[in-house]
C-alpha cells in the first residue's frame, strides 16, 4: 500500500533570492529518483508539502508549471521554523516532497475563455505557475485574452522580476504590475490592487477571474470584481489555511464540511458563499 505520509527526496538545484529584504526565495528542485517525476503529475494551483527532515513539513503552492520539465519550483517566505530552515539550505542539499495535493485551477473550464489573474504578495506563486502554463506554446491557443494584475507592497518585494520583464514584452498578455508604495527608481504603477483592478476594468464577458493573495487584498478586491460583472461562479479564489496532512484527515483546514487541502485550495466564490464564513 502506498504511504501518503512519505516524502520523496529532491535535490535543490538552484535558489533565487526574490526580494530585497531577502525574506522570499524561490527554490528549484529535482527528484533524486528521476522515476518520481512521472508520478508527480500536477497542474497549476496545486500545492505540496515540503520537508526539511528533523525540522518539519509545511505546505507550499507549486510555483512552476508542468510545462517546465525537470524541475519543480517553490517560492518560500521566511516566517517560522521550517521556512527558516529552508532558507538556510544550499543548492545540492536534499529536501522531501509530498504531493501534489489539492485540486488546482480548473484548466478545462478556462479553455476558450478570457482569463483575468489577480495576485498579491507571495500568493502570486501559483498564479505565476498558471500564467506560465497558459503562455506555453502548446497551450496558448486554447485560451483567449489573458490579463494579469500583480501587486506587491513595494518594488523591492516584487517576485519573478526577470519573468515580469519578459511578459511585459509579449503581445498576447496584458500585464499590470503595481506597488502600494513606490521608491525613487520605480516608474511603474502605484496603487492598491482593488483600485488598480477598478481602473483597468477587465471585461467580464466570457471571462473567469482568479484571485490569490493576502486576506485584506481579497476582501477589498471581491466587491470590485462583482461590480465589474463577474458572477460568483466565474470568480475563483485560492485559499490559505493552516494545514498539516494535506489529505483531509488531520482536521484543521476545513471550512464547513469542505477541506481546503483536499477539496480546495481553489474554490469558486459561489461555492464559498454556500459555506460558513470561517476563513
Amino acid at each position: 500500500m502506498n504511504n501518503p505520509y512519505l516524502p520523496s527526496p529532491m535535490r535543490i538545484e538552484g535558489i533565487v533570492t526574490e526580494t530585497e529584504d531577502r525574506n522570499i526565495k524561490t527554490f528549484s528542485l529535482s527528484f533524486l529518483d528521476r522515476g518520481n517525476e512521472a508520478v508527480f503529475k500536477y497542474i497549476p494551483g496545486q500545492f505540496a508539502e515540503l520537508s526539511v527532515l528533523g525540522k518539519g513539513e509545511a505546505p507550499f503552492g507549486i510555483a512552476s508549471s508542468p510545462t517546465q520539465k525537470g524541475i519543480i519550483e517553490f517560492t518560500v517566505n521566511k516566517i517560522g521554523l521550517l521556512t527558516t530552515a529552508l532558507h538556510n539550505m544550499e543548492p545540492g542539499e536534499t529536501v522531501g516532497i509530498r504531493g501534489p495535493l489539492g485540486n488546482g485551477y480548473p484548466l478545462t473550464t478556462l479553455q476558450d475563455k478570457n482569463v483575468v489573474i489577480i495576485g498579491g504578495g507571495f500568493g502570486f506563486s501559483t498564479l505565476r505557475a498558471l500564467t506560465t502554463f497558459l503562455l506555453d506554446k502548446s497551450n496558448r491557443n486554447s485560451f483567449n485574452n489573458i490579463t494579469v494584475i500583480y501587486g506587491a507592497r513595494s518594488p523591492g518585494l516584487l517576485l519573478y522580476k526577470d519573468e515580469l520583464r519578459e511578459w511585459e514584452k509579449r503581445a498576447d498578455l496584458q500585464l499590470y504590475v503595481t506597488v502600494d508604495k513606490g521608491d525613487k527608481d520605480w516608474e511603474g504603477r502605484v496603487g492598491f490592487i482593488p483600485a488598480i483592478t477598478k481602473e483597468i476594468a477587465p471585461r467580464a464577458d466570457n471571462a473567469y477571474v482568479l484571485v490569490c493573495g493576502p486576506p485584506a487584498m481579497i476582501r477589498f478586491t471581491l466587491p470590485v470584481i462583482e461590480e465589474l460583472g463577474f458572477p460568483p461562479e466565474r470568480t475563483l479564489l485560492s485559499l490559505e489555511m493552516r494545514m498539516k496532512c494535506g489529505l483531509g484527515k488531520c482536521g484543521r483546514c476545513n471550512i464547513g464540511s469542505k477541506y481546503v487541502c483536499r477539496d480546495g485550495p481553489v474554490f469558486t466564490l459561489a461555492e464559498l458563499n454556500r459555506l460558513p464564513r470561517e476563513y
Binding site: L32, L53, T94, V95
Partner: peptide, 10 residues
C-alpha cells in the same frame, strides 16, 4: 531518517 536533512535515508 538517518541524518538530519537526508531525505534519502527514510
Amino acid at each position: 531518517c538517518g541524518s538530519i536533512g537526508d531525505a534519502a535515508s527514510i
